[in-house]
Design a protein around this nucleic acid. Structure first.
Length: 420
DNA sequence: AGCTTGATGCTTAAAATAATGTTGGTCT
DNA sequence: AGACCAACATTATTTTAAGCATCAAGCT
């Protein structure tokens, strides 16, 4: 049997590692691989001298799944919910095992055993984008759910909704879940912006317009998605938001201008953690302003946890002063705010299952079984905003307080449309 | 035994940092 | 078969949201 190239290299590495470990420890017992789930069991009847390592994650690739329905699919990887830290580590390594299915790889178990037909995989959740539906699958071999997400053309799927006798309610408490609805043609379409948007095309819209008018989704009308004689919105002013976002944490970085002796600092100061084998930098905390710093030997320092730009700068000066007590001559150089996290409550609930179908901001990922929030990416200012069904909003990635306010004002009219 | 309750820890996002580890590809 | 390289993961810090799993403790 021809051994795939990546398997050959893997067995080489193992042999090399075993050799060095044997040199260090004469009583060394090689790992049999029985315990490790990150390894895929070798095909029955073949030698166990090499194992099949899981191919690396590849964003998308067309693969043919062997089995009764040899459907062409795009394969993407996804994360797994509710796994322990170690399990997640294993799962990450075992993501996208179908990556190389299309290549002739005679040693790969899942081709030979013909077990990976679409019918054999348990459908866990789905997400609609364009005319493809994403389905998360459960892999019977690795005992991990959500191992891979496959994208099927919709017309090749059996409807998996309430009409299906096998249908079970998702275990999520969020009963707004409509991800099991595969009927793409009946997705609601919204007319937005100036009202001159091309039917079927991307809506032509501006935030300014959104801000001025509360938009109302129009009902599909025959072959067209909306009736052109109708006004695309109700001319009603959107009320000003009742709240503004509060800054929860700022992450900033700066450079002290010289290399630092972390051992010396660790031995002489309080409120520090230093375990270079576990994590390279020294972790230092001060009470006022309440913050934490990661101090690297290169002289770069990351300060996290402050609640305003002014507090953050003050904390940076404080850490520099502490460091200078140990013989360094540092200054605050190249200070830069890297990330601001802010939150606020909208005071109304948001229908996330409808919001995620809005095409205004591109494809939005919403998988309530994995995480109950809907993440909306913003380009200007570049940040990500997570909206929860309860109306809580989290904003991450902002570079300044002004960014946060601007981002919130941009997103508010959009989520306002989806209030009950 | 089976239930409820509370605590804990994980999921998502962002960002910098940097040594070390892993993995697949290419070349000799 | 082995060297080498590129690219990425991992380790940790901060902070919150809501949902879920998994514990322990207490009660019936």
């Amino acid at each position: 049997m021809e051994v795939p190239d990546f398997c050959r290299r893997a067995s080489q590495r193992i042999a090399k590692k075993r050799k060095t470990e044997e040199e260090l420890d004469p009583d060394y017992q090689p790992d049999t691989g029985k315990e490790s789930k990150s390894r895929v069991a070798a095909t029955p009847g073949t030698s166990r001298d090499w194992f099949i390592p899981i191919p690396r994650y590849s964003p998308t690739r067309e693969v043919a799944i062997p089995g009764p329905s040899r459907t062409l699919m795009h394969v993407t990887a996804t994360t797994v919910s509710s796994e322990s830290r170690m399990d997640r580590k294993k799962v990450r390594r075992s993501r996208a095992i179908v990556d190389d299915l299309r290549k002739p790889a005679p040693g790969l178990q899942f081709i030979e055993r013909n077990e990976y037909s679409v019918e054999d995989w348990k459908v866990k959740a789905s997400e609609i984008s364009k005319n493809l539906v994403r389905v998360k699958l459960e892999n019977p071999d690795t005992d991990t759910d959500g191992l891979a997400a496959l994208e099927y053309p919709i017309h090749e799927l059996t409807p998996y909704g309430s009409n299906n006798p096998d249908y079970t309610e998702p275990r999520s408490r969020n009963m707004e879940l409509e991800a099991y609805d595969f009927d793409f043609n009946n997705l609601p379409n919204y007319v937005m912006g100036t009202g001159k948007g091309t039917p079927g095309g991307p809506p032509n819209w501006e935030f300014k317009t959104l801000w001025n008018y509360e938009l109302t989704p129009l009902q599909p009308n025959g072959d067209h998605f909306y009736d052109s004689s109708m006004q695309p919105w109700n001319k009603r002013d959107v009320t000003e938001p009742e709240t503004t976002p509060d800054i929860l944490s700022i992450v900033a970085s700066f450079y002290v201008g010289c290399r630092l002796d972390l051992k010396k600092i660790a031995n002489g100061s309080r409120n520090i953690e230093y375990n270079p084998e576990r994590f390279a930098p020294l972790i230092m905390r001060v009470r006022e302003p309440k913050s934490t710093a990661l101090i690297f030997g290169s002289g770069r320092i990351i300060v996290a946890g402050t609640r305003s730009e002014a507090e953050c700068k003050l904390a940076c000066r404080k850490y520099t002063r502490i460091i200078n007590k140990f013989g360094h001559r540092g200054r605050v150089l190249r200070f830069e705010i890297q990330n601001i996290l802010a939150s606020c409550s909208l005071k109304f609930r948001v229908r996330l299952n409808q919001l995620c179908k809005n095409k205004m901001l591109g494809p939005l990922s919403y998988e309530p079984e994995i995480f109950p929030g809907l993440v909306i990416p913003l380009e200007h200012p570049k940040m990500k905003i997570t909206v929860f069904a309860t109306g809580s909003v989290l904003m991450t990635g902002g570079k300044s307080e002004a960014d946060v306010q601007l981002g919130f004002r941009k997103i508010y009219p959009l989520v306002r449309m989806y209030a009950p």
